[in-house]
Simulated scan of single mutants.
Amino acid sequence: MFSYEKEQQEAIEHIDEVQNEIDRLNEQASEEILKVEQKYNKLRQPFFQKRSEIIAKIPNFWVTTFVNHPQVSALLGEEDEEALHYLSRVEVTEFEDIKSGYRIDFYFDENPYFENKALSKEFNVNESGDPVSKSSEIKWKAGKDLTKRTGQTPNKAGKKRQHEEPESFFTWFTDHSDAGADELGEVIKDDIWPNPLQYYLVPDMEDEEGDGDDDDEEEEGLEDIDEGEEEEGEDEDEDGDGEDGEDDGEDD
């Protein structure tokens, strides 16, 4: 019995040694992966810049992209959408060591809602290694603070996904409660920013649904016509039988 326990203990120690080697390789892999990511982040920058210059030529590109995105559209009220019509450029910048965080910049044309030409939100880690965020203070024009309007009407896209009225999209700039898991920030950085065109080109689902309704109405109309023709045919058969019966009687 003692021999078995000793062998088991030695086996556990050997497993621990091998696990330490695996952990060491994992750390080495993480460092090398980080270097590769840093390298390709730099290589992508000129293409992101070129893409931004082309996007600037397309009116309402970013508001259309956000409205077409299922998660972001659920956060947009009608007035938010109106304000985002003045959004001319979006930029996502990952910090050089990547692990420390990123920043999202929104650039706006002159608009009736706020004075800022740019709004940004930044995510990083503090000295203790805890995730934190900070953002621009929005300088709202008189009576235009969308974060204080709780009665915003959800936009058309948002209505499909939720029944409650959404808070303003712009409350995101003042919410620093969960910097380590900021859903909107991560959606913009990891989903929209790598390829916004896929969301800009999403077809209007309402139009598609509308077309489907028309088709259903046409099919129902055709069914009504078919049913009407069948009823008329039955009436004619009944009338025909009656006439034949009368003729037979007269012949007798």
Rank of each mutant, 00 (worst) to 15 (best):
Y4E: 14
E5P: 01
E10A: 06
E10W: 04
H14R: 11
D16A: 08
N20K: 10
R24L: 09
L25H: 11
E32T: 06
K35M: 03
Q38S: 06
K39H: 09
L43S: 04
R44D: 12
K50P: 00
R51C: 02
S52M: 02
E53Q: 11
I55M: 07
N60G: 04
W62S: 03
V63P: 04
T64R: 07
V67S: 08
V67I: 07
N68L: 03
N68A: 05
H69F: 04
P70F: 03
P70R: 04
A74Y: 01
L76M: 14
L76Y: 01
E78A: 15
E79T: 15
L84I: 06
Y86N: 00
Y86K: 00
E91W: 00
V92G: 08
F95P: 01
F95R: 04
I98E: 02
I98Q: 10
K99N: 06
G101I: 10
Y107R: 02
F108C: 08
F114R: 12
N116L: 08
N116M: 09
A118H: 07
L119G: 02
E122I: 04
V125E: 09
E127I: 05
G129P: 03
P131N: 06
K134M: 05
K139A: 14
D145L: 06
T150M: 13
T153L: 14
P154D: 12
N155G: 07
A157V: 01
H163T: 13
P166I: 07
S168F: 08
F169A: 02
F173L: 06
F173C: 01
D175C: 01
E183C: 14
K189G: 03
D190K: 14
D190I: 08
D191A: 14
W193N: 00
N195F: 09
P196K: 00
Y199D: 14
Y199F: 09
Y200F: 15
L201Y: 07
L201Q: 06
L201W: 05
P203S: 11
M205T: 10
M205F: 12
M205W: 09
E206L: 12
E206Y: 13
D207V: 14
D211R: 12
D211N: 09
G212S: 12
E220F: 10
E220A: 06
G221Y: 02
G221R: 06
I225V: 11
E227T: 12
G228Y: 08
E230S: 10
G233S: 09
D237V: 05
D239V: 13
D244V: 09
D247L: 15
G249W: 10
